[in-house]
Design a protein around this nucleic acid. Structure first.
Lengths: 236, 236
DNA sequence: CGGATTGTTGAGGATACTCAAGTTAGGTGG
DNA sequence: CCACCTAACTTGAGTATCCTCAACAATCCG
């Protein structure tokens, strides 16, 4: 079952660094805590953006559906991340759908407090801006990969990022700590689940990963890095 | 020749909306004006990020070179745009190279003023955040296109965006108002100049565009929109 | 146990890339 | 002002990557 959101879990969020205790108090007091089970939808693409959020625990997947019905994964949301900040993106609706993939806890504020907090607490605004900057960089990195790299390298990059963000050490490698399907990886990398399946099967044969139904274990991160960098492993 | 940057050109920048006259005065007084000819480099990828900028007039192209030496166009910078805000991206070096493609004028501040201004003037911080939000949206749109659309549609989208941002009305269409090569369009869309050339030749045959050496005229924006939306023109 | 979701694998083919050769346009210098 | 040179572009041929279609297998859940 869920455990309550702990005060220190919230207080230690990087987003809130630089706030005075009483300011932090005020900001947190204005938030509602919310819990989500895997599969729960936090908000849906196109909905009027009534709230913005910080993920305290767990993991979310943000997706977009194109007008043709094709879906892409925009990003994974990790603990400490701001999400649903449509107002900051100069929008009144959510551009994507956020779905929990693990048991998750989030803090949630009415959107009108966004402008208010950002105006009142420069430290908060700076942190929010940093967070947006990171997202710009990540998006550009993805554009670069999609523009210049072949599928296998893109998948390698994506898997390495997942391992970095959500990898827990196990005896024989790094386990992605939430259920992730081949389709998810395909939607992260702009390919099809078929191609992902073939690639992961090949990698498993080479001892780089182990993958099962919504499971992924990275056995040889260094080998994957070589692949991601465009070097065939074993050619050294 | 260049004409000087006019006061009203600066004062009317959206970025500065909401500042009191004396605040605007202070911010602008801290800036240096700079001018660039086509081909001039404003800053280079990897350089320590000493300044941030606002483009007042003209047009820039921001590019990145991958470790393999492939280049992509990150974005075009249009009048009124912030650029070179590495600090906001949580970096100390410029992630790309900015090159003038038209005669351009920019305002330029030492980077340390970024944090200072953002802390001191919430209205400025909000506008900067909006601008970053727009860039996140644009980057995601590009990821979506690269992930789900075929080359011809991506090129159509890119050309339409260029026409929107830099199109001047002419008798028989919208002229892209700066020199743009097939290679540029290829680097905007993740393809090769060969493919772009073939596509534009086909489009010219269909009366959609006219294109020459670093020239591009959109004759039938609506037809391009149909292409971009995945409909074959003429199949209606 | 049965149904549904997820994943595997093969065959065939299309899109778009690479390689290659040549053409055009524009700028430069004599 | 013309000849030349380079950068930009065009076009063709061949092919590799990766997608689509299809059938089937494995896993999970109720």
């Amino acid at each position: 079952m869920y455990i309550a959101i702990e005060k220190n879990e919230v207080d230690s969020l990087e987003l809130f660094a630089g706030l005075l205790p009483e300011q932090l108090e005020e900001v947190v007091a204005a938030a509602a805590g919310r819990r989500y089970h895997p599969g729960d939808v936090v908000f849906e693409q196109g909905q009027s953006a009534a709230h913005f959020f910080v993920l305290v625990r767990g993991r979310l997947r943000v997706t977009q559906v194109t007008s043709e019905g094709e879906q892409i994964v925009v990003r994974m949301v990790n603990p400490g991340d701001l999400f649903g900040i449509a107002r900051a993106l100069a929008r009144h609706d959510y551009p994507g759908t956020a779905t929990a993939v693990s048991d998750s806890c989030a803090l949630c504020w009415p959107m009108r407090l966004w402008t208010e907090f950002m105006g009142r607490y420069p430290a908060l605004a700076m942190h929010a801006m940093q967070a947006m900057g990171v997202r710009i960089s990540e998006a550009h990195q993805r554009v670069r990969e999609l523009s210049t790299e072949e599928v296998e390298r893109r998948v390698a990059h994506a898997v390495l990022r997942l391992a970095n963000q959500a990898g827990t050490k196990e005896r024989d490698g790094l386990r992605i700590d939430f259920p992730i399907s081949k389709q998810d990886i395909a939607e992260l990398t702009g390919t099809t689940l078929h191609t992902v399946s073939r690639i992961l099967t090949a990698w498993a044969g080479a001892g780089l990963v182990e993958s099962g139904r919504q499971k992924l274990l990275v056995r040889d991160p260094h080998g994957l890095v070589m692949l991601a960098d465009g070097l065939r492993p074993g050619l050294l």
